[in-house]
Amino acid sequence: MAWIEILIEVAREHAENLSDALMEAGALSVSVEDADEGTDAEKPLFGEPGMEPEEAAWDRSRVVALIAADADAAAILAEASAAIALTTIPAYTTRHVEDQDWVRLTQSQFEPIHIGKNIWVVPSWHEIPDPAALVLELDPGLAFGTGSHPTTRLCMEWLEAHAPKELSVLDYGCGSGILAMVAKKLGAQAVVGVDIDPQAIESANFNAERNHCDITYTLPEQFSASHPVGTQFDVVVANILSSPLKVMAPMLSGRVAAGGFLILSGVLARQAEEVAAAYAPFITLTVWAEHEGWVALSGKKPS
């Protein structure tokens, strides 16, 4: 069976409503892309834990609707446009989509990822490239963190370079749980992961069980109850984004034990100075490494 995709370029304010209207008019699925993807005008939308974008739309958005091969693309778009009171029907193009093994195609897009000196993140359907390496079996999922993003990679490389053997580790904003698992496999004694998203906690628990890692993953309110103020960790890592990191400076700094380390990422290079300034009253942070415009900040709390 084959399908047809309708590709429609619209302004940001129409992307979400048009998507909904297309589904009502008979589209099988709808997605929104950056119409400037691949150009200098491309604008990434970042949706990491705690900072999800309000809408998946760009100034110039491309709405892509999948319809049956025998469906009338013009009629479906006309109905959707009328439903949201567009004065004119947007210009569009179509392209044929041939049937194929979609599961195999999706899996082929995710290869094992080599990080640092000796870490491999391997999807479950792949063979392990190096059985002697530190291997994490992790499939792409709903929670952020597979090692493909520069911020995750930077934190993993820091942990590898400063193996927390026999130390306690807090992963705040844990997402998929990948950083907590790296810490545990590097010899950490007690590891706790915290995230505001219940789905992330569910995903992290699943991943930890699959990778034979004894880790406690919890929501913030549960964490506060089981680890009251004053409970500190030898290593605290937070891979979120700059705005929440600045807000959480007193709390995260307070969770670092004397002589312990704080590692922050989710920070663009141009934001490093202002994030470090927010933590300056508690811990002196410097840029440990940079990758693709993102940085990891780290510092040691005075003994």
Rank of each mutant, 00 (worst) to 15 (best):
I6V: 02
E202K: 07
S224W: 07
E202I: 12
S108P: 14
P140Q: 11
F233W: 03
S29V: 09
P90M: 14
G47F: 09
E55V: 09
D101A: 10
D70T: 11
P53D: 09
E55Y: 08
A78D: 10
L28G: 13
Q199E: 14
E111C: 14
G50C: 13
S19L: 13
A25S: 15
A71Y: 01
A258N: 03
W102D: 11
W3P: 01
L7V: 03
S81K: 03
R62N: 03
A278I: 10
T94W: 00
D214M: 03
E111N: 07
D40Q: 12
A25W: 00
E273W: 05
A278P: 08
E111Y: 10
D72G: 02
D234F: 00
S148F: 04
M23T: 12
F110K: 07
V97R: 14
A85S: 08
Q100P: 13
Q109K: 11
A75I: 05
G145Q: 06
A269D: 09
V191I: 06
A27N: 11
F261D: 02
G187H: 09
H149Y: 06
G259Q: 08
I76G: 00
S253E: 15
A296V: 13
P53E: 15
H212Y: 09
A163R: 11
R153Y: 15
V194S: 04
I113R: 03
A75C: 07
A276P: 01
L262D: 02
R255F: 08
K300F: 07
V122A: 10
A225K: 15
E137P: 00
N211H: 13
A269Y: 06
D214G: 07
L66Q: 03
D40P: 02
K301A: 08
I128W: 11
A225C: 07
V135C: 12
Q222Y: 13
Q189N: 14
W294Y: 14
H162Y: 08
E33Q: 15
P90G: 04
E48H: 05
A269F: 08
I76D: 00
R12F: 06
T218K: 03
H114S: 12
P164T: 09
S81F: 08
V182G: 00
G38M: 10
W3N: 15
H212P: 02
A200G: 12
R270N: 07
